[in-house]
Design a protein around this nucleic acid. Structure first.
Lengths: 200, 200
DNA sequence: CGCCGCGTTGAGCCACGTCAACATAGGTGG
DNA sequence: CCACCTATGTTGACGTGGCTCAACGCGGCG
């Protein structure tokens, strides 16, 4: 359960009272609901949030570069959701020292959260191919520089889009055959064309 | 289109520069994306948010009692989404005078928004019957007092759950035949049993 | 080596979408 | 009052997209 693989270069970082350091994770749990900790800002990568609804984990939201993670901890003292890294993630603590955030900053976060929620919701409407394509577009916008894009595992993508692994796999195969996506290396690295406008 | 049926007792309220009054709408547009206006707090009722994605309207979120509506207007000067009332809605302007909201208040809103987003997302996963049932539970918790519940139109429910009107209609029929729901009068008023725990 | 997690592909089936007909309520004008 | 229309909801028949189940390939790891 608590198999936290810290990909950070130096210390295992067991218990820091007020962490001011940057984190780099690699596909594992960032925190669990109920844990105590600071709020984080995503410098790069993608994070999935899960909620526990009756001993069941269910996908509850997507957080991308620039989004703030676990701000509710500043209010409640603990996190409300699980947060797991999708691919590699770089985090920085939000609000370096314990200063209160400004109202304007919080309003920006609020607006960003609503926008992201709308995008995530849209990933669960329409045909399977479109959903996967939309997810690719979202993730593609999230990468920093390289034309290469690291996509999440099939299971994650399936739960995000509310499809099955098999259907997502088939959708990706079709996108690849249509030339909109190219595999580079086995697991996850892709190169994407202009699939923003592709209908069929 | 602009058939705003004000259920308020007194004035038609055509144009107020800084409205400090309460609004009561009844199933029509509250504001459109791009409009200017204050932020609102929902005293009762349910509101659907829509975003315009390429000349297409798509459901972008649900706002219930206690939620704040259009807070992004405080930041951008205009609303980001369309807002339409589902059933009857009672609003009050948020932040009576133009004072800035406190950080704590904004954090509460942020947490509430994320929670609501997760709930809305869950309405688009699983089987049709479950989705509709979940939506009922959500709306049932939203009512103030009476054991009666006014449900939205089929079209709204269909777009919220990402199903078709027909499927939603059939789901409701099944819930009614299972005794979990009872119609009172034609259009919308229902009485709900303990459908929170019903599996099949 | 065997095992396991992950991805791919196929076959079959079923829940849901599509299309269509009809019912009901409300509104409007005669 | 009825005639008529429109919006909304209901129900049935049918087709299909995606889910289920299953087999297999591949790579990593003990």
């Amino acid at each position: 359960m608590s198999k936290r693989t810290m990909a950070g270069p130096s210390a295992p970082a067991s218990a820091e009272p007020l962490p001011a350091r940057r984190h780099i994770l690699l596909g594992e749990t960032i925190y669990a609901a109920g844990d105590q900790g600071p709020a984080w800002r995503i410098r790069s990568g993608a994070v999935r949030l899960d909620r526990i609804a009756g001993d069941e984990r269910s996908f509850a939201g997507l957080a991308l570069k620039g989004d703030v993670l676990g701000a509710e901890s500043l209010l409640f003292g603990c996190y409300s959701f699980d947060a797991r890294a999708i691919g590699a993630v770089e985090l920085e603590p939000w609000l370096a020292t314990n200063q209160a955030p400004s109202g304007e900053t919080l309003l920006q976060m609020l607006a960003a959260t609503e926008k992201r929620a709308a995008e995530t919701l849209a990933l669960r409407a329409g045909e399977a191919l479109d959903r996967v394509r939309q997810l690719m577009v979202l993730l593609a916008r999230n990468r920093d520089d390289s034309p290469l894009l690291v996509i999440p595992g099939l299971k994650d993508m399936a739960e995000i889009t509310s499809l099955t692994m098999e259907t997502v796999s088939r959708a990706i195969s079709r996108l690849r055959k249509a030339g909109l996506l190219q595999k580079r290396g086995r697991q996850v690295s892709l190169k994407l064309g202009d699939l923003e406008f592709a209908g069929a």
